[in-house]
Design a protein around this nucleic acid. Sequence first.
DNA 1: CCGGATCGTACAAGTATGTGAATTTTATCG
DNA 2: CGATAAAATTCACATACTTGTACGATCCGG
Lengths: 245, 245
Amino acid sequence: MIVRQAANVLDIFEYFARTKKPTTLAELADHFNWPRSSTFNLLTTLSEKGYLYEPRPRAGYYPTPRWLAMARQASEVEPLPAWSHALIADLSAETGETAAIAAPSGTMAVFIDVVESSAPIRYFAQIGHRIPIHATSSGRALLLQYTPEERDALYRKIEFKQYGPSTPISINAVETELRASIDRDYCESFADYSRDLAGVAVPLPIGDRRLSVVVAGPEFRIGDKTHDISIVLKRLVERHRPKPG
Amino acid sequence: MIVRQAANVLDIFEYFARTKKPTTLAELADHFNWPRSSTFNLLTTLSEKGYLYEPRPRAGYYPTPRWLAMARQASEVEPLPAWSHALIADLSAETGETAAIAAPSGTMAVFIDVVESSAPIRYFAQIGHRIPIHATSSGRALLLQYTPEERDALYRKIEFKQYGPSTPISINAVETELRASIDRDYCESFADYSRDLAGVAVPLPIGDRRLSVVVAGPEFRIGDKTHDISIVLKRLVERHRPKPG
DNA sequence: CCGGATCGTACAAGTATGTGAATTTTATCG
DNA sequence: CGATAAAATTCACATACTTGTACGATCCGG
């Protein structure tokens, strides 16, 4: 169950991140189609908690740097190593496509680091973006790191939906694709989940964390280059990952 | 009115910032005395929005870097100039006390930047921390920048409470203290709001923003040094603030 | 490897909470 | 400066949320 008011807080937060401008009560209420009164209550709550302030009455609400101060601390919970960001930065530079690091979260994969392509037509991914774990290359690169038992447990929770023409819609289809991935030594997907989108991914275990790296972009650019991309992918992983011992 | 679930989101956020550790549903529920089921709903909401993820079932929730990514963007809404942080850093170093920048928010003042003293006994202030505008030195340094009309409007909203022995509990008391501040050329307060706390502050207009700088610490250390501190305060403001023209 | 304890998840009833209309306050224009 | 419009704020009711309960899964100690 979605807790509406919890989601609303995040919506306001993201609204500020997007617009990068102060905002009045009326503006927010109109934008989200919220009643003025509810918007007022939300803004009051955020202000009392020290996350917003109103330098002068009716002239708009501003976010305080408290968001940043807290986020900085919260991001120490489980920081990624510095090299993983360098890795996707290089990957994006060499391939010209968007590169990302994904982590599992239930039946979903979450992007926990992203470097976007600079191409005008590109895969627009964001940190925190979630995609079905079984219907994406980055997701399947995560599944490869699961034990068969863990995969079984997960499959029972997945709601198989036909996102695109090639979406695997059964446990068998997924397992078959996983075996194929092992054979070719990388994961790939063509519009399995998002239209026109192709991806190439490999597992990237870090410590005891099961992550994956993915390069993704429009099918027409990635199309027949998945093998070449997988070579670059593996070469760069090899270069950046610290040698054990 | 406080929106409970909105506040809860921030509480969870701050919990991660404080503990810097992943957290299980049960742990959170116990800590905040929330029912498991409500906690479950909240965590689900935060996960679906991409702010939390659960790498493996029952092994705990982790914050995603999305908090940080959004906060970075949101902090571009109204960035402080670089010199204002340098100012309070120097201030804190020279005085040995906590220094901060405050902004008005209704009848409150909010700290929007803080450098804490390194002394073991010190004023523990945080970005986002709110204090009554009329009963603190930093707040009154803000009030000095208001027009008499604006102050009048504000006074009507203030609920005068006796926070400490010297809290000004009437409009007159506040106005008298403001005139005294003009005469001595800086604002000061001794436990007007927080017990044992003394502060020295001056206005710090930046652009069209009405801010203030404050040095605050325990009364026994600040006590009779307020004048000396005000000298340092004004000297450093003079040094850091870019010359007009 | 078994059994008890713990944890996560679903559900339905009662109530706190958010909403919409009414009121007050502030800004704007003639 | 007074009238008008728009915004913010208050208040009472209907809705959506919380919560206790129950079930199933998973963990852990013996």
